[in-house]
Design a protein around this nucleic acid. Structure first.
Length: 312
DNA sequence: CGTCCACGTCTAC
DNA sequence: TAGACCTGGACGG
């Protein structure tokens, strides 16, 4: 998500990971955010795109009415939302008054259950590539929004959904404040496992992260959210310990809201390892990172919305 | 073959 | 608070 052009993170693999979890089921690589942004900004850095944006016939999302001889693509993210910015490169010899010049355009994405971006040769467009941006080079490549279940959405000239809260990764302090200032909100009448999926407060947390977060703290998933959160409202009083000691304590004993930042950060780092684009090794790394979700021996139940919650 | 399940919204009753 | 929206892999008969 939130990996803008300024994001310093390292190389990204070229292929969205598919991972085999212990029970044998396969999962798309999970980090809801950041990762796609890093992928885009890494693979599109210094690459010039050209022409119009192509949409598949089957997608019900809108056309993306953008066309330019030369343009650049960059990405940013916020929680589970993702933004592509298309920026025309100034033409030296642009014909005077031959139609309107193409202005920069933002396209906001939500990935649903199966959305991802992938850069391929234009001659090898993958199945379910519902939006395609072509490079100018020869042979051309295509940046593809691939989404086999088509739950993903995009919005031309869109903006971050107003009801979604700050990003758990990139806006941690705002995120924390937004939760703690609103503990009386009716959203927190619900069990903590359900509240954690509420994107108004936990923008970026999804089904595997909620399980991992609660599991690390051994919080029973159906404990009332308010009860859990009220315990976090009073920051620890200043004690005599040194700052570095405090930082260390915080890292080693993160509270629930800190874990909402820390765990997805760990996943992003996992997946950022190495340059090898096709390694199956990093799906193994994610599989091994999971301590609870889909892990043999853990229990699971359905929450009130029919989503599976994993716990010990 | 069939049923169940999947990292998420979205909207209609 | 149910479905609806989708494809496809795992597993059962």
């Amino acid at each position: 998500m939130p990996c803008g052009a300024s994001c310093p993170m390292g190389a990204e693999r070229a292929v969205p990971a598919t991972l085999r979890v212990a029970c044998g089921r396969e999962l798309r690589s999970p980090s809801p955010f950041l990762q796609p942004g890093r992928y885009i900004n890494d693979t599109c850095d210094g690459v010039t795109f050209s022409g119009r944006v192509e949409k598949s016939q089957v997608s019900k999302n809108s056309e993306v009415p953008f066309e330019s001889e030369e343009y650049l693509i960059s990405a940013t993210s916020r929680g589970k939302e993702f933004k592509l910015t298309l920026t025309p490169v100034k033409q030296e010899h642009s014909p005077p008054n031959k139609g309107e010049a193409q202005k920069p355009m933002d396209v906001i994405f939500r990935f649903g259950m199966s959305g991802s971006f992938k850069m391929t040769l234009a001659s090898e467009i993958p199945k379910h590539a519902h939006l395609r941006f072509y490079t100018k080079e020869s042979p051309p490549r295509a940046l593809c929004f691939v989404d086999y279940r088509r739950f993903g959405r995009w919005e031309v000239d869109g903006s971050w959904q107003p009801d979604r809260g700050p990003c758990v990764m990139l806006e941690y302090e705002k995120f924390r404040e937004n939760v703690l200032k609103n503990v009386s909100d009716k959203a927190f009448n619900k069990p903590i496992c359900e509240a954690l999926l509420n994107q108004k407060f936990f923008n970026g947390i999804g089904n595997y992260l909620r399980a991992e977060i609660l599991h690390r703290l051994k919080i029973p998933p159906f404990e009332k959210a308010r009860t859990v959160l009220e315990n976090l409202q009073h920051r620890e009083p200043d004690s005599a310990v040194t700052l570095s000691r405090k930082v260390k304590l915080k890292r080693e004993n993160p509270d629930l809201l800190e874990l909402c930042h820390q765990l997805p950060t760990e996943v992003v780092r996992l997946e950022g390892k190495g340059y090898d684009p096709e390694r199956s090794a990093d799906s193994t790394a994610f599989e091994q990172w999971l301590q609870c979700y889909n892990v043999p021996g853990m229990k699971s139940l359905r929450d009130a919305n029919g989503r599976t919650i994993w716990f010990q």
